[in-house]
Deep mutational scan, measured.
Amino acid sequence: ATNIVGKVKWYNSTKNFGFIEQDNGGKDVFVHKSAVDAAGLHSLEEGQDVIFDLEEKQGKAYAVNLRIK
């Protein structure tokens, strides 16, 4: 899925991951530091509006192509 809109539920910059809540009511999506770095960001803030693509690997969904809304 592409261009999914959501809000950062939480992001832990020490542990380098967090979760994004989808605006469409879907399951929360894992986001890793690598996606944050690829977006040219240092971190994510709770409540921040983002747009992302959804990829699945080994049955787990995660956010890629992250951008600030």
Rank of each mutant, 00 (worst) to 15 (best):
F30L: 05
D23Y: 15
N3T: 05
D23E: 14
H32E: 03
V36R: 02
K33T: 05
I51H: 08
H32V: 03
K9Q: 04
G25C: 05
I4D: 02
A61L: 12
E45P: 13
G18P: 00
K69Q: 04
K15R: 12
L54P: 01
I68C: 05
D49A: 15
N65D: 05
S43L: 13
S34P: 03
V8Y: 01
K15Q: 09
K57W: 13
W10N: 03
N3Q: 07
I4S: 07
D23K: 15
G40L: 06
A63K: 00
F19N: 01
K15N: 07
N16C: 04
L44N: 01
L41N: 05
E56Y: 13
R67D: 05
N24A: 12
L41I: 09
F52G: 01
I4C: 04
L54Q: 07
K60W: 09
E55C: 04
F17M: 06
D49M: 15
L44W: 03
A38S: 13
D49R: 15
A61H: 11
V8R: 00
G6C: 01
V5M: 10
N3C: 05
V36F: 05
I51D: 03
G25N: 10
A61V: 13
A61C: 04
A38D: 08
G40K: 10
K69D: 09
I20N: 00
I20P: 00
N16K: 13
A39V: 06
G25R: 11
L41E: 13
L44A: 02
G18D: 00
E56R: 08
Q22I: 14
G26Q: 10
N65Q: 07
K7T: 06
D37W: 15
L41M: 08
D23P: 15
I68T: 08
L54A: 06
Q58M: 12
A61I: 12
G26K: 13
Q58V: 09
E21L: 14
G6P: 00
Y62N: 09
I4N: 08
V5I: 07
F19C: 03
N24H: 15
I51C: 04
Q48C: 05
V36I: 09
W10T: 04
D37S: 14
A63E: 00
T2S: 12
I20E: 00
K33M: 05
K33Y: 08
T2Y: 15
S13W: 09
D28K: 04
